[in-house]
Computed example of a mutant assay.
Amino acid sequence: MTDKEIFLAHLDSITGNLEPDIRMVQSEDAQLPDVAVLTYENWPKPGFITAFTYGLSLADHPNWKRGRCELMISMESLMHAWPFAIGALVSRLRGRCPFSYGNTIKYGRSISEESEMDAFLVFAPPHLDRDQKTVRMNDYDCFIAGVYPLYGSELDLYEQIQLEAFWHHPGWDPLNPQREVMRMVQ
């Protein structure tokens, strides 16, 4: 099997063989192929949109010592802007950003018309258990990282309190596109 076939088979096992909507995002690097965004509506439950990239792991990054990475997003929404955004991130930043847990990324504009969120936090993927987060490809391990939308104004709060406190902040509802902006708790 090719790496792409291995990755798709892994997603089949996770989603129960659901058929994804596959859309391509044009590569911003002429040396790399376009990025596939595999989107699942109403998974893992009704009212959610969940997507995975395939194309980030085709690049290399000097920080990747134990394997390579692909991205996952899941939102309580059915708007395809959320999946498209992670495909755009990969196209724009692969090879330059390690997409390591704790990384924050400014998107540059609102991710979706249903929210003013315009940044991302990279952390453990939602809905996946330990075994589902890693895909053994032919020559490397591929780790699935979760990306969580943020309001740009929350980046300062994140820098002040760091990942663990941010993740456990009382206002943090990472899959809700309608959540309120988080502020420092007094």
Rank of each mutant, 00 (worst) to 15 (best):
V35A: 01
H10R: 11
D34K: 10
P149E: 01
E28R: 15
V90F: 06
L11V: 12
L78P: 15
A36H: 11
Q160W: 06
E19Y: 07
L8V: 12
R96F: 09
V35S: 01
E5G: 12
I144F: 05
R136H: 10
L89N: 02
F166Q: 01
V181Q: 07
T15K: 05
W43K: 03
W64Q: 07
I161W: 02
T53F: 03
I105F: 02
C97L: 14
D34Y: 07
F99S: 02
A85E: 01
L78Y: 06
P44T: 08
E28P: 10
T2W: 07
R66P: 05
L155G: 00
N103D: 14
I22V: 15
F143P: 14
Y101C: 11
V135Q: 02
P98C: 08
S112C: 11
K65P: 07
L38I: 07
G67M: 04
I49A: 05
D21R: 15
K45W: 10
R130Y: 12
V25E: 01
S153Y: 04
S13V: 08
F123V: 09
P177N: 04
V25Y: 00
P33V: 10
R109S: 15
M184L: 14
H61W: 05
T2Y: 12
L157R: 00
S110I: 13
H168M: 13
L175I: 11
N42L: 06
C142R: 00
R130M: 15
H168E: 13
H127R: 04
E5S: 10
A119W: 00
G95K: 13
D131W: 13
R66W: 11
G152P: 03
L56M: 06
P126A: 09
R109T: 08
Q186M: 11
M117E: 04
